[in-house]
């Protein structure tokens, strides 16, 4: 419950302050957001499995975001930034889908 509240408050804050993305973060933020979404879905699945651990979640969340940003950064340095970020998005998307499928099986048996 409080997690959902946190999400709502975050969205509200974002709408309220209308922050601009710092120029240095611009290429990394979209990837970071997708990576965080992956961590969230993984956490929900783990919770429904009954083996959720907040420490694991925090670590996976932060490391997901950092690794995603790092990959994009390295890609940019190597001149394959756009291709690499596409790859990261694809991998994260597949993971999100498989996690969502597991959640669906838990809740609806389907």
């Amino acid at each position: 419950m409080i997690a959902v509240l946190g999400l709502v408050v975050g969205v509200a804050l974002g709408l309220l302050f209308e922050p601009t993305v710092p120029a240095g973060l611009q290429p990394y933020l979209p990837i970071a957001v997708v990576a965080a979404l992956d961590a969230v879905f993984g956490a929900i699945r783990a919770y429904l499995d009954g083996r959720f651990d907040d420490k694991v979640f925090v670590v996976s969340f932060i490391s997901n975001v950092l690794i995603a940003a790092l990959i994009v950064f390295v890609g940019d340095q190597l001149g394959v930034g756009s291709q690499l970020s596409t790859g990261v998005i694809v991998v994260l998307g597949i993971r999100i889908f498989s996690n969502a499928a597991a959640i669906r099986r838990h809740l609806f048996h389907a």
């Binding site: 946190g6 975050g10 969205v11 974002g14 933020l29 957001v33 965080a36």
Partner: peptide, 19 residues
């Protein structure tokens, strides 16, 4: 643990809306 999760969700929502 839920408080921590909520804090991270807050960051996620904020970042997503910003992006």
């Amino acid at each position: 643990g839920q408080w921590v999760v909520a804090a991270l969700f807050l960051v996620l929502g904020f970042a997503a809306v910003t992006q």
